[in-house]
Amino acid sequence: MATPTIQRRRLGMALRRAREEAGKTRDEAATLLDAAATKVSRLELGQSGIRLTDLKLLLDFYGVSGEHAESLHALARAGRQRGRWSGYRNVVPDWFRAYVDLEADATEIRWYQAEIIPGLLQTESYMRALNTTGLPHESEEELDDHVRVRMERTAIIDRPDAPALTFILSESALRRNIGDAAIMRNQLQHLASIAERPGVEVQVYPFSAQSYEVSTFDFIILRFDNDPHSDVVYLENFTDADYLDRLDAVRAYSGLWNRLQAAALGPVESRRLVRRIADEHR
Rank of each mutant, 00 (worst) to 15 (best):
A241R: 02
I109D: 07
L135T: 09
F219D: 04
R10D: 00
A164I: 05
V91T: 08
A69M: 10
P163R: 00
V233H: 08
L43M: 12
D225G: 02
A278R: 01
E141C: 06
S48Q: 15
Q81C: 08
S254H: 11
V233R: 02
H281V: 01
M1R: 09
I168R: 02
A252Y: 14
Q47P: 00
L52Y: 08
A18M: 03
Y234M: 04
N90L: 11
E201P: 01
L32R: 01
R128F: 15
E70P: 02
R150S: 13
A36H: 14
H73F: 15
R246A: 14
S86N: 14
F217C: 03
L52E: 15
E70V: 07
R10P: 00
Y212S: 07
A36C: 09
W111E: 10
Y99A: 13
E142D: 12
D218E: 10
R175M: 06
R197T: 04
V40C: 04
L15M: 05
L58C: 02
Q47Y: 10
K39Y: 15
S254A: 15
P267D: 15
T132Q: 14
V233A: 10
S215V: 02
P228T: 12
E124D: 12
D105E: 08
A2N: 06
T31Q: 15
D105G: 00
A181Q: 12
D161T: 09
D101R: 00
E44P: 00
R185M: 06
Q122G: 12
L188P: 01
R42F: 12
S48F: 10
L256D: 05
R271P: 04
F96M: 10
M151R: 05
S86T: 14
E138L: 14
L247R: 13
A36D: 15
Y88P: 01
Y88K: 02
E140D: 15
H137N: 13
